[in-house]
Design a protein around this nucleic acid. Sequence first.
DNA 1: GGATTGCGGCCAGGAACTGGCCGCAATGCT
DNA 2: AGCATTGCGGCCAGTTCCTGGCCGCAATCC
Lengths: 321, 321
Amino acid sequence: MTTSARMLRLLSLLQTHRYWPGAELSERLDVSPRTLRRDIDRLRELGYAVDAMRGVSGGYQLRAGGQLPPLLLEDEEAVAIAVGLRTAAAGAVSGMEETSVQALTKVTALMPPRLRRQLDALRTQTENFTWGGGPVVDAAVLTLLAQGCRDDEPLRFTYTAREAEPTERWVEPHRLVSLGRRWYLVAYDRDRQDWRSFRVDRIADARLFGGRFRPRDLPAEDALTFVQSGIRRMPQRYAVRVRVEAPVERVQQAVGHWGSVVADGAGCRLAMNVDDLQWPLMVLTQVGADFRIDGPPELADQVRRAAGTFSRAGGHPGGDR
Amino acid sequence: MTTSARMLRLLSLLQTHRYWPGAELSERLDVSPRTLRRDIDRLRELGYAVDAMRGVSGGYQLRAGGQLPPLLLEDEEAVAIAVGLRTAAAGAVSGMEETSVQALTKVTALMPPRLRRQLDALRTQTENFTWGGGPVVDAAVLTLLAQGCRDDEPLRFTYTAREAEPTERWVEPHRLVSLGRRWYLVAYDRDRQDWRSFRVDRIADARLFGGRFRPRDLPAEDALTFVQSGIRRMPQRYAVRVRVEAPVERVQQAVGHWGSVVADGAGCRLAMNVDDLQWPLMVLTQVGADFRIDGPPELADQVRRAAGTFSRAGGHPGGDR
DNA sequence: GGATTGCGGCCAGGAACTGGCCGCAATGCT
DNA sequence: AGCATTGCGGCCAGTTCCTGGCCGCAATCC
């Protein structure tokens, strides 16, 4: 075995178990103890913090150091990471979407086919719940677009614009933007010879087309502002304001960080800015306490509708409390 | 620079951008083109699939190969992975909890302190929404326990059993089990000299105590059956059965894979087995269609209560539809 | 105090790496 | 068709660096 391969194996061993007696390591790597000590030294010189304990039951241990060592993952771990990133990219953790997609692209691009098949098998199981009714974004499409952006590779896909027939597009992808609960692709449309932003949930049948292109300059400050200027219906258009008769902690727990909650007398005031009223409705269901809607009126409509549905299903409408 | 360090850098370069002209790589690594070609060869011998394109604008590219190469992550990517795994471990993706914790343990254990601080800062932002009211499990505690299990290190923690005073425990951790929406630690209690299962959400102030122990044999087939036999209140005790007047696809999308949906006439029948009725209630809110509850009666109570809350908040109860 | 385990200097032999040279094979442009 | 570009890999000579074995030393536990 070559030295570099051995170093990788050593790193991998140190990542699985915690303490390794030097003798065991040298045996596993099939080198003399002296060489093992030298290998450990080499790792240290590379900046990885390898601790050593002397005396009886001593051994080596990879500590958290100055930098993250190359992660050597088991198959299952890699799949778990991809699944976790997929939910994060879908907006389960706000603020992390872009980075999650970036990491997801890296991981999936390097995955051997067998792992990718596992992941596809899991997809049907995982991705279809959408946290309040936003459009479903296919993680596979998302990573493909991200790859195109990263590597400057042209893409083709079918785009179904709002109330229009599907059209075939050929673009130079520039950047992915997560805005509100939606993903947008900013790209240069080769046929139309102009910049466009595409809603990712309306993109179908995307594929890399091979070759590379020279990146153009976007005629805007950055991709985010470009997308924002192009959207007519601004997302997060509902400013939800509700007074809830429940302690602030309970409401805070239900809403997470997608809204702000301030105490007000015995209850609290909840403020959220959302694109879709399904979400505040679910929060209110979750809390289960009485509340009063200060706005918007559409939310009141939703609540009335839900009240109708529930009372028809449950029997006597104003029932026990 | 040593050869192994150079190989790692090369791998890292190949992971960031997609196509690399050989000349650029050899320049960055400060070796001759000939050596670069040899390095590429070495990578291939290690099993990583490096593609090459010849001719003008040719170059190298790391393809998905037989095995997953060591992941060289940017700081932000590592944090994104940890965050994604945390939500997955908390039960956002059922079936992946154990593996997610395993991967999370590996990643966080290797993280340099600065990244762990970032992660802690994000924790307050992310972990507090609990998908239907289950108890909150602290991801930091979870990974600590997982580490103890993996490395056979004894643990100390404070345990607050059901309606009892907190007690100090000293255990040999054996396995973590995710059951329903809860986490359990199976461990040998050193003071009581017997096996116990602990609910992780009732564990506080856990810390590794140093040293290692020789693993004992668990007096049960596996950890899962041990936990199950010890739980009096079986989780998932409600068998929810509802007829919904909405197409099967819509209901399926709302419920994800936490229940089964079969078509029935114009509507469908929804079946879920849950521990907590909050969850089916949210699904029904999400669907928004009329429905009839076939069981359990407690769900009907919940629905009536929600109907009351909503109608008081929304104005006229049987409102528009 | 003794046993165990890691540390690192020293040394000699040898394995492996390096850079330079070559002709060859794809690939894409003109 | 011809040409430039870029990767491929054999060969070679020089040299670096890696290895295993030996040693005395230091820390740690019993």
